[in-house]
C-alpha cells in the first residue's frame, strides 16, 4: 500500500457521515491501491470517488453497447453497486481497472439477456428513447435506431464482442481481455456477429448500402 497516497485519501475524505442527502465532494488524488482500500473499508462517499475514477469509461462502454437508452442511467448506477458489492474479493489494485470493465461488461450482458427474455414474452423493449434528444438529425437518428435494433437481435456475447471491435475500435486482444475469453473465442464471436449483422442488414437498404454488398470478411 502506498502510505502517502493513503494519507492523502484520508485527508480529503470527510470524517463525518455526510448523510443521505449530501453528496460528498472528494477530489481523488490517490492511486488505485488507496482507492481499493477505501472501497474495501466501505468508507462513506467512496462510491463517488470510484465514479470519478472510472465513470467516464463505464459510461462510454455502456453507451456504445446499448446506444442511447432510457435505462442508461440506471444501468450505470447498478454497475457501480455491483462493483462495490464485489470489491472485497479483489486482492490486487492492479486488477481494479480490468475488474471494473469486466463488471461493466457482465452487467450489461445481463441487461441484454433480460431484454431478450422480455421480448420473447411480448414485453415491449424499452430502448432508443434518448435517440431523439441525442441526434436531432432525423437521418442520423434513423440510422442509429436501425443499427441498434439489429444489434438487439444478436446474442448478447456476440453483440458485445461486435461493439467492442467495431464501435469501440478495440484490437482483438483487447476484446478478448474485456470479454474474459480466449483470442480464438473473441474472433469467433466477432465473426459470427458480423455475419448475422450483415445478413439482417441486407433487408435494410440503407444499412446494406453502407456495408457494401453481401460478402463478409474475417475479423482482423
Amino acid at each position: 500500500m502506498n502510505r502517502e497516497g493513503h494519507k492523502r485519501a484520508h485527508a480529503k475524505t470527510p470524517r463525518k457521515d455526510p448523510g443521505p442527502e449530501t453528496i460528498p465532494e472528494i477530489t481523488w488524488q490517490g492511486d488505485d491501491e488507496a482507492l481499493l482500500l477505501l472501497c474495501q473499508q466501505r468508507r462513506p462517499g467512496v462510491a463517488t470517488v470510484l465514479y470519478d475514477r472510472f465513470g467516464k469509461e463505464i459510461h462510454r462502454l455502456v453507451w456504445h453497447i446499448l446506444g442511447p437508452d432510457s435505462e442508461h442511467e440506471d444501468l450505470v448506477h447498478q454497475i457501480f453497486i455491483n462493483i462495490l458489492q464485489g470489491i472485497h474479493r479483489l486482492r490486487s489494485a492492479q486488477s481494479l481497472h480490468a475488474w471494473c470493465v469486466s463488471v461493466t461488461i457482465n452487467t450489461t450482458r445481463s441487461e441484454i439477456r433480460k431484454r431478450s427474455r422480455q421480448r420473447m414474452f411480448f414485453r415491449p423493449e424499452k430502448c432508443m428513447d434518448m435517440v431523439a434528444d441525442h441526434t436531432p438529425n432525423p437521418e442520423d437518428r434513423d440510422l442509429l435506431k436501425r443499427t441498434f435494433s439489429l444489434l438487439s437481435h444478436l446474442p448478447s456475447k456476440e453483440r458485445i464482442a461486435f461493439v467492442l471491435r467495431y464501435i469501440e475500435e478495440n484490437t482483438l486482444a483487447q476484446v478478448a481481455a474485456c470479454c474474459d475469453c480466449s483470442l480464438a473465442t473473441a474472433k469467433r464471436r466477432i465473426s459470427r456477429a458480423q455475419k448475422r449483422f450483415r445478413k439482417m442488414a441486407q433487408r435494410d437498404p440503407a444499412l446494406a448500402e453502407r456495408l457494401g454488398g453481401k460478402g463478409g470478411s474475417e475479423p482482423c
Partner: peptide
C-alpha cells in the same frame, strides 16, 4: 448518476 451514487449506502 454521480448524484445518485453520492446518496448510496455502500
Amino acid at each position: 448518476v454521480r448524484k445518485r451514487l453520492g446518496k448510496v449506502e455502500i
